[in-house]
């Protein structure tokens, strides 16, 4: 049964890379079920993240957000800061797709705080980029300029010409 769980996970990833997102969801749902049977929180966390990603490409952004929220809860439970940051970044982008810029800002700020904690300058730059855009969408031009300047500073530091 444990091997079946891993196989469903691998199968889901293969379907995902092939661009078959319906089959991706089917496989990762099975993977999730087996992870829950075993109380394997790390596998459960991976399945929620993979499901969230698949729902993004199925255009079901609200469903994707719910899966990313479970990913975030489990990342916190497992005390995995890097995964927590990644889940916040995914949620920020998903709420941008949903045009809910206040929630997007909330999650991008959470991502920014963890990126700083982890001294992840690339992550910090991306958070500032996203925050600048979300504030622009809301007409908060002062805040947008603040984050755009931070993004520029970090991009220069990391040598990101684009």
């Amino acid at each position: 049964r444990a091997a079946q769980g891993r196989t469903y996970g691998n199968l889901g990833n293969a379907y995902y890379l092939l661009g078959n997102f319906q089959k991706t969801v089917g496989a990762h749902e099975q993977r999730l079920l087996i992870a829950k049977e075993f109380g394997d929180r790390a596998a459960e966390r991976r399945a929620y993240c993979n499901l969230g990603n698949a729902y993004i490409f199925l255009g079901q952004f609200g469903v994707a957000a719910e899966h990313y929220k479970r990913t975030l809860q489990l990342a916190r439970l497992l005390k995995d800061k890097a995964v927590e940051a990644q889940a916040c970044y995914s949620l920020g982008n998903t709420y941008t797709l949903l045009r809910d810029y206040e929630r997007a800002i909330d999650y991008h700020l959470k991502h920014l705080i963890i990126a700083r904690e982890l001294k992840d300058r690339v992550g910090e730059g991306r958070a500032c980029w996203s925050l600048g855009n979300a504030h622009t969408a809301l007409g908060n031009h002062q805040d947008a300029v603040h984050f755009a300047e931070k993004h520029l500073e970090i991009s220069r530091e990391t040598g990101d010409k684009s």
């Binding site: 891993r6 990833n13 490409f57 255009g59 982008n93 941008t96 797709l97 600048g132 855009n133 622009t136």
Partner: peptide, 26 residues
């Protein structure tokens, strides 16, 4: 997938391009 400010499309599209190749490996 979106019609909004061009800068926004940039940061979200960049994320989606990366996401397309990202899987949580067993």
């Amino acid at each position: 997938p979106m019609r909004m400010h061009s800068l926004q499309v940039d940061s979200v599209q960049r994320w989606m391009e990366d996401l397309r190749h990202m899987t949580e490996v067993e």
